[in-house]
C-alpha cells in the first residue's frame, strides 16, 4: 500500500510541473497583455509611459518567456504567487480570502446532491425497468438539461422578488456584523439556499443516474444470482454484495467533483454575487491579470491532483485487487 501511495505521489509531482509549464505557456500565448489592458481601459492622453514601463519591469514582462517562467516558478515553490497587476494585493491573500466562500457553497451543494442523488439512484436500480424508474430517469434527464443561469433567475424571481422570503444576492445581510451568533448562522443559511439549489439540482441528477447504472451493472452479475440462490434477503444482497462493488465508479465521480470545491462556479457566483474563486477567476482573465490567473490555475491543478490521488487511494481501500496490482 505504501509503495502504491508513494508512486502515485511521485506521478503527482511530475504532473504538477507539466501543468505549470502548460498553464504558463497557454496564458502567455493568449493575445493581449495586462499592459494593453491598461491602455484600453484608460482614456486618451492620461497614459504615462514611464508608469507602463515600470509595470512591465516589476512583473518581468520585459524578459523572455522562459526567464519569466523561471521567476514565476521560483515564486510558487516558496508559496509566493506574486501580486495582482490590478489591485497590487498578493495573490495568495486574494485566494485565501475567496476560498472559504467557494468551499462552503460547493461543499453544501455537493453534500445535498450526493445525499439525495445516490439513495435515489440505488433505489431506482432495484426497480430497473419499471414505470416509476423510467419516469424518474426522464425527470433527472430534464433536470440535468436545464441551464443553471436560467433556473437561478427563475428562483430569484419567485422567492426573492415575488414572495420576498429569501435574500436576492450576497452571502450575508447588511446588518450581519451586528447580529448574534445564531442569527449569523441563520442569515448565512438563508443566503445559501438559492445558490445551493442552483448548483445541486444538476449534480444530483448526475449522482442519481451514475449510481443507478453502477449498481444495475453489478446486480446483473452471476455472484449476485448466487447470493440470491443461497437465500440471502434482497436487502442483504444489496448491502453486502452489490454495493461495495458499485463503489468504484462512484469514487471516480467523487474524484471528478472534488476540484469544484476549490475552483468554484463562475455563473452561479456572478448571478448571486457569491464572492468566491469563480468571480476572481473571471475578473482576472478579463483583465489579463497574469499572476492571479496563474495562481488560481495552480491552486485548481493541485486540487485536481489531490482529488485523483485520493480517488486512487480509495480505489485501493474499496477493491483489494487494485492494491495487489500496485505491488
Amino acid at each position: 500500500m505504501l509503495t502504491y501511495v508513494v508512486r502515485r505521489l511521485l506521478y503527482g509531482v511530475l504532473t504538477f510541473f507539466g501543468i505549470t509549464i502548460a498553464i504558463f505557456v497557454l496564458v502567455h500565448s493568449v493575445p493581449g497583455d495586462p499592459v494593453s489592458f491598461y491602455i484600453g481601459s484608460h482614456g486618451m492622453g492620461a497614459l504615462s509611459h514611464a508608469a507602463l514601463d515600470e509595470i512591465r519591469r516589476e512583473h518581468h514582462l520585459d524578459q523572455p518567456i522562459p526567464q519569466q517562467y523561471g521567476w514565476w516558478l521560483r515564486g510558487i515553490v516558496t508559496f509566493d504567487f506574486g501580486t495582482s497587476f490590478i489591485n497590487h494585493r498578493p495573490v495568495t491573500a486574494l485566494i485565501a480570502e475567496k476560498l472559504p466562500s467557494t468551499f462552503m457553497l460547493n461543499l453544501v451543494a455537493f453534500l445535498v446532491a450526493a445525499l439525495i442523488g445516490v439513495p435515489i439512484g440505488l433505489w431506482s436500480a432495484t426497480r430497473s425497468g419499471r414505470t416509476s424508474e423510467r419516469a424518474s430517469g426522464v425527470a433527472f434527464f430534464l433536470l440535468y438539461s436545464l441551464p443553471s443561469f436560467w433556473v437561478a433567475l427563475l428562483l430569484m424571481q419567485l422567492f426573492s422578488v415575488h414572495f420576498h422570503i429569501l435574500p436576492l444576492f450576497g452571502m450575508t445581510s447588511d446588518d450581519y456584523l451586528d447580529r448574534g451568533l445564531t442569527s449569523k448562522v441563520a442569515d448565512r443559511a438563508m443566503h445559501l439556499i438559492l445558490p445551493v439549489v442552483t448548483l445541486a439540482y444538476a449534480q444530483m441528477a448526475i449522482y442519481a443516474r451514475f449510481s443507478k447504472s453502477a449498481l444495475t451493472e453489478v446486480i446483473r452479475q452471476d455472484f449476485i444470482t448466487t447470493a440470491r440462490a443461497k437465500g440471502a434477503t434482497s436487502a442483504a444482497v444489496l448491502w453486502h454484495h452489490a454495493l461495495r462493488n458499485a463503489l468504484i465508479p462512484l469514487i471516480t465521480l467523487l474524484g471528478l467533483t472534488l476540484p469544484y470545491l476549490v475552483s468554484g462556479s463562475v455563473i452561479v457566483e456572478e448571478i448571486f454575487q457569491w464572492d468566491g474563486i469563480g468571480r476572481l477567476y473571471f475578473d482576472a482573465i478579463s483583465t489579463r491579470d497574469y499572476p492571479t490567473i496563474l495562481g488560481l490555475s495552480v491552486a485548481t491543478a493541485v486540487a485536481t491532483l489531490f482529488a485523483s490521488l485520493l480517488a486512487d487511494i480509495l480505489y485501493a481501500v474499496a477493491d483489494p485487487r487494485i492494491r495487489l496490482e500496485g505491488k
Partner: peptide, 9 residues
Amino acid sequence: SESAEFAGW
C-alpha cells in the same frame, strides 16, 4: 507608484 490614471497628465 504606477499611477496609470493620472501620471500622463
